[in-house]
């Protein structure tokens, strides 16, 4: 474990708790893409299947359990409890356009042709594009609530910090996982224009609105 990965994990935890808190407090999931949340749920479930079989550390097990629980809770709030506030007219990104290619790629490009490894690879690839419906929704509505933009900033920062973690681990531990690195770079690049808007607008107290 290194500081970059730790801060990255905490940023990730902050992001998902921030979103859950926003939906719970405002009793509304307006501006939140349910499709992205479903895909994140899928990411955690397919990646953490080894939750009970492969014990790494208390920290690892606890975080995995929290991620899965918070993802399920968020999906429940969006599609059940506060379903009336779910903006399905703007959450129109076709998930199958992401899940099918990612599923195929996981079969073709992986480290080991075993069920667990292919599911892990699927999870890594899916995570890199899972935010697209959310970014697409913001581009359609033309704006995002400030709390939602903080959520996106924390979520985008987590994988950016993981890239630094991978550089660190390459130089100090001779470790690197090309699949995770390439997917992590794609994932972080997708946030770039959002990061720009966040830094130039939200950090100056303005609302995040896309140029119409």
């Amino acid at each position: 474990m290194n500081i970059f990965r730790l801060v990255g994990d905490l940023s990730h935890l902050l992001a998902i708790l921030l979103l859950l808190w926003k939906i719970w407090k405002t009793r509304s999931c307006a501006g939140v893409s349910g499709k992205s949340q479903i895909m994140f749920g899928l990411v955690y479930i397919t990646r953490y299947l080894d939750l009970f079989t492969n014990f790494i550390s208390i920290y690892n097990t606890t975080m995995k359990a929290i991620f899965i629980a918070v993802a399920i809770a968020t999906i429940y709030l969006i599609y059940f409890k506060f379903k009336a506030t779910y903006d399905s007219n703007h959450d129109t990104f076709r998930m199958e356009f992401l899940i099918v290619p990612v599923g195929g790629l996981a079969f073709l490009v992986n480290h080991d042709f075993t069920a667990l490894e292919i599911l892990w690879t699927f999870s890594i690839y899916l995570e890199s594009v899972a935010i697209l419906p959310q970014l697409f929704m913001i581009s359609k509505t033309g704006e995002a609530e400030t709390i939602t933009s903080h959520y996106l900033f924390a979520l985008g920062s987590y994988r950016a910090l993981y890239i630094v973690n991978w550089v660190y681990r390459y130089y100090f531990e001779g470790f690197f996982d090309l699949i995770a690195i390439v997917a992590g770079c794609v994932q972080t690049i997708l946030y770039c224009d959002f990061f720009y808007l966040y830094v130039t607008k939200v950090m100056h107290g303005k609302k995040l609105s896309l140029p119409a």
Binding site: R5, D9, D50, N60, H111, G174, F175, F176
Partner: peptide, 10 residues
């Protein structure tokens, strides 16, 4: 290079 065999990352 060594792969992420022990999958210690989240």
């Amino acid at each position: 290079a060594q792969q992420n065999k022990d999958k210690d990352e989240l």
